[in-house]
Design a protein around this nucleic acid. Structure first.
Lengths: 347, 347
DNA sequence: CTGTTAGCGCTTTCAT
DNA sequence: ATGAAAGCGCTAACAG
């Protein structure tokens, strides 16, 4: 039993080839119109024969794939939140009859080698959603421009074609909250990937979060206190931060620590716990991102939840808008608002 | 500037069409052989023109897609661990030049409507990896059989073509550990999706974990105590379990609770915390799965870690074995061992 | 609506 | 190695 083709269906249904094509995947611009009766007849025949259209063959003529790539500009991404982006992208795609194709970063020996992964070397996608957690996305951006492939960004801020979060206000709200709850010394903690990494080279959210934090501190008449630690590119759950990073050696314990993200917040909280400093009684700790891990833990973290599912969903819809209006190249970016989720790591 | 095809490359390189085809994607069985010099020349021309082969066109002749589907037989999966399966699958695929295509469950109004999602109705995949967390996979199994699509299971136990975990020994080890650490009353807690759900209708791991737990209790001369609670299909992080489920109304607080999975363990721990029962001083709580959330939390959970990345990786390799040995239909299933990860929810 | 035909981009065969 | 040509499954254009 070879493969069942449209030809077999036509024979079985007793109609023409073109009729089958139109019955199964109608095109309003087609010169050939099929009636409901024919459609039914064709469907029945197709079902009986177990016909499944060959996606590749379709794409050859139409040059449409109904595939959208999901590119993660980060190593080892899928093992950690927020994977809500992917879920949103996937649901939106499925609803519109598109498939999501995973495109991973290629990396050898901890270095990004081929910036454009080999999977993109084949023509197989109608568009690409880039989920950025990394300054690297800037490099990719240029490389992709030449490929004539519409690109949409999720969790990255660009002039157009992106879904991003208003982290300035997010950080401001979090800092305000900590101050309101009684903190007068609030440290903003973040990690760097290397000794001399500049804020400008980091993800856009770094600058926004710092600015939001500073603004809130200034408005309250408090002094901003930003502390950084140099760590590897990813923060493994067993990777330790030096115990004396935040205090010790003369430094005082602040009332609250606002960490750049939940990973860092959890790591800091672990240090405190080891030192028998009680959370939230002795110190308040807040994170950012609203990672699943922070929310469902038996001792949930106070965090700013990013609407990652909605952002992924919106990003895919942006991508489809561009694909389907074949003239248009750009759509305005969409701003999302984060939401304060109060856990048990603050009072 | 239309699309750059193999024809343009041939012209640019000054060689024949067939030569380009062979130079760029060599086939040992081809009658036409190209030398290294030609290959170089062709590659250079292709690079210069920005040539990207059309995946669809390739697939028409060869009937190979270099796509493997990843099917999640569960609603809203990608938002929660263990997503390590997907990462393993994705890495293994990338290494071998395959793409991962996400195939979601279609569900309307909380009911599974079309068991085989529409994305599978097109011929587009060489194989499918089914990640099962659900008895539903049995239904899918039958439906897929007719499709002539090799199917491999991850986190499900079948005679062949599956990567599964030895949960019997996992549960046994966990129970032994709890007993060793001083517990004499250990409750095994699990949830049911409906009032009259039978263990046999659940995921294979339910029975294995129960049996492992029972065996350990019996070996220690203790009485098994299994308690179930009826909940929705998914356990949201804000979904509450009745506070009096495990104790109250005459029931005594056990020394330890071994929960079917980390989600449930976290929920139980939250109840305890609300009731001012100290963990681990007053009661020990253990989970299962080794979800990222459990491991990276600032108060990590004691859990059995499933090697989900490795399982996903292995499952994909099984799939490729079947794809590439076009004769073979089955490979022996692979058993994985879970690993005890001691957190701070037990002594 | 039908039947026929061209053609998408690529692989493969055939004769040279 | 070449150039020519067939064919994969499908869509789309053509005249009826």
């Amino acid at each position: 039993m070879g493969r069942v083709t449209i030809k077999d269906v036509a024979k079985q249904a007793g109609v023409s080839l073109g009729a089958v094509s139109q019955a199964l995947s109608p095109n309003p611009n087609s010169t050939i119109k099929v009636g409901d009766a024919t459609v039914m007849k064709v469907r029945k025949a197709a079902d009986k024969l177990g016909f499944r259209p060959h996606a590749g063959a379709k794409s050859v003529r139409s040059n449409k794939f109904h595939n959208v790539g999901f590119f993660v500009a980060k190593k080892g991404v899928l093992d950690r939140p927020p994977e809500g982006y992917l879920m949103g992208v996937s649901d939106a795609a499925q609803k519109r009859g598109y498939r999501i194709v995973l495109v991973g970063m290629e990396n050898g020996q901890g270095q990004y080698q081929n910036v454009v992964p080999s999977l993109l070397r084949e023509k197989n996608l109608d568009a690409l959603v880039v989920a950025s957690h990394h300054h690297l996305s800037a490099v990719i951006h240029d490389e992709l421009e030449n490929m004539n492939l519409p690109v949409v960004y999720v969790n990255d801020k660009h002039e157009s074609n992106s879904a991003w979060v208003d982290d300035y206000n997010g950080a401001r709200m979090m800092t305000d909250y900590l101050i309101e709850r009684g903190a007068s010394s609030v440290v903003f903690a973040m990690r760097l990937h290397s000794d001399n990494q500049k804020i400008e080279d980091m993800h856009y959210s770094a600058e926004m979060r710092i600015d939001g934090y500073k603004a809130a501190m200034q408005a309250a008449g408090l002094e901003a206190d930003i502390r950084t630690v140099v760590m590897g590119e990813t923060l493994e759950f067993n990777q330790r931060i030096p115990d004396d990073w935040l205090f010790g050696g003369g430094k005082e314990l602040p009332d609250a620590i606002f960490a750049y993200d939940d990973d860092l917040a959890n790591s800091i909280a672990k240090i405190m716990y080891r030192k028998n400093i009680r959370i939230p009684e002795d110190i308040a700790i807040a994170g950012y991102n609203g990672a699943y891990a922070s929310l469902c833990a038996w001792r949930p973290l106070t965090t700013m939840r990013i609407p990652s599912y909605e952002m992924g969903y919106a990003a895919l819809e942006l991508a489809l808008k561009i694909i389907e209006d074949s003239g248009r190249k750009e759509c305005p970016s969409i701003k999302f608002r984060p939401e304060l989720v109060i856990g048990e790591s603050t009072r």
